[in-house]
């Protein structure tokens, strides 16, 4: 490949009921080629029942410089987790 081809991120669903999982990327010139290339690269051993390809430029991610600002504020909010709470002895199904 040299120019004109794009990178597509590939997501595979292994079985119905399971989430789609990112497995890697492929290069391709167009959508149809991208999904076929993904099929041949990532599902040759029956690894999937459904496939997504997404142009890499469509993916938005948190800038490295902002990572602390995005994620650290969640660290001190233990009250969002069930383990934060004390349940009285003998009380079940909470």
């Amino acid at each position: 490949m040299e120019k004109g081809d794009k990178v597509w991120e590939v997501f595979v669903q292994k079985k119905s009921g399971l989430p789609f999982k990112h497995v890697g990327s492929v290069r391709a010139y167009d959508k149809k080629m991208a999904i076929q290339n993904a099929r041949d690269l990532y599902t040759r051993r029956s690894e999937g029942r459904a496939l997504w390809v997404v142009p890499v430029e469509a993916i938005v991610s948190v800038p490295l410089d902002n990572a602390d600002a995005f994620f650290d504020p969640a660290d001190d909010k233990a009250y969002r987790h069930a383990t934060f709470y004390v349940t009285p002895e003998g009380v079940n199904h909470l």
């Binding site: 490949m1 081809d5 080629m33 076929q36 290339n37 041949d40 690269l41």
Partner: peptide, 11 residues
């Protein structure tokens, strides 16, 4: 013509 197509043709 390129690697991805190599794999496709092999298939």
């Amino acid at each position: 013509p390129f690697l991805e197509e190599d794999i496709a043709i092999s298939n």
